[in-house]
């Protein structure tokens, strides 16, 4: 019995952070050159990166800093951080969505940390604009309630939502949602359910899973092993490693140009 691929997979990491953060360790990598070196070591071709400042300081300022730090570096794709439209902090919501879409980026939301609500009365216009622009939304499990997620998926069937940073305890939540909604995707980084990748693929299709690492906070080797050692065919593994996320970002996979 073997699950060996006979070849190296091309990875697109949808869960990577860049930038100086408030709480760091000497081991943490904070800048683009450091992350590229780590990606080379780990065998990660491309990464969708968000900026620590967007999370910990100011989404608008952090998004600008992100674009500065990754300018001209084709290993990175921008993951903006979003907010409700009403305060106007990110400008016109349609312009914001168009900018992200043009950059083949995504939008990450921190409703609990940034003090807002995912309900329609608060986030409906933003989510509608992102759906219309074909921009995927990334949500960490700690930032939402499962009922809120179900309502987003129900109200915005054209919005692709990637749930990040889950755990080995989520099948009883996520399986009913997979069954009900076609626009839900699961990042694999901390989805450490025993044979979980095989089970999701068998029940809901290989397109539902996207690769992420959580770098620079967590090791890349674990998430990579989940895919390279999955009992899935090579095409499916490559889709999970990068193809599925690339499709959500409107890109061909593998992306042409320099990579790992």
């Amino acid at each position: 019995m073997s699950v060996a691929s006979g070849t190296r997979l091309k990875f697109l990491d949808c869960n990577m952070r860049i930038g100086r953060a408030g709480i760091v360790r000497p081991e943490h990598i904070l800048d683009a050159p450091g992350l590229i070196a780590e990606m080379d070591y780990a065998g990660i071709d491309r990464a969708l990166v968000y900026h620590a400042w967007s999370q910990e300081w100011d989404p608008a300022g952090g998004n600008r800093q992100l674009l500065n730090e990754i300018a001209g570096l084709d290993r990175f794709l921008p993951c903006y951080v979003g907010l409700p439209h009403a305060t106007g902090e990110l400008g016109d919501v349609d312009d914001f969505a168009a900018e992200v879409s043009q950059a083949h980026g995504a939008v990450r939301l921190y409703p609990k940390a940034h003090q807002y609500c995912l309900a329609e009365w608060c986030m409906g216009p933003t989510l509608h604009a992102l759906a219309e622009a074909g921009v995927p939304v990334l949500l960490e499990m700690a930032q939402f309630e499962w009922n809120e997620l179900a309502e987003i998926l129900r109200h915005h069937p054209r919005l692709n939502v990637v749930v990040l940073q889950t755990s080995y305890r989520v099948n009883r939540y996520i399986f009913p949602l997979f069954q009900e909604f076609d626009n839900l995707y699961l990042e694999t980084c901390t989805y450490q359910v025993m044979r979980g990748l095989e089970e999701v693929t068998r029940k809901y299709g290989p397109h539902r899973l996207v690769f992420g690492t959580g770098l620079p906070l967590t090791d890349a080797g674990g998430p990579i092993a989940q895919i390279t050692y999955a009992e899935l065919d090579l095409e499916t593994k490559q889709a999970i490693a990068g193809g599925n996320m690339a499709r959500l970002l409107g890109l061909e996979w593998p992306i042409q140009g320099s990579g790992a």
Binding site: Q192, A225, T228
Partner: peptide
């Protein structure tokens, strides 16, 4: 922790370690 947790992440972390 197999099968509480899938054994692959724990192995991958070791195989990749510097």
């Amino acid at each position: 922790d197999n099968p509480f947790i899938d054994p692959r992440p724990g192995l991958g972390r070791m195989l990749m370690a510097r």
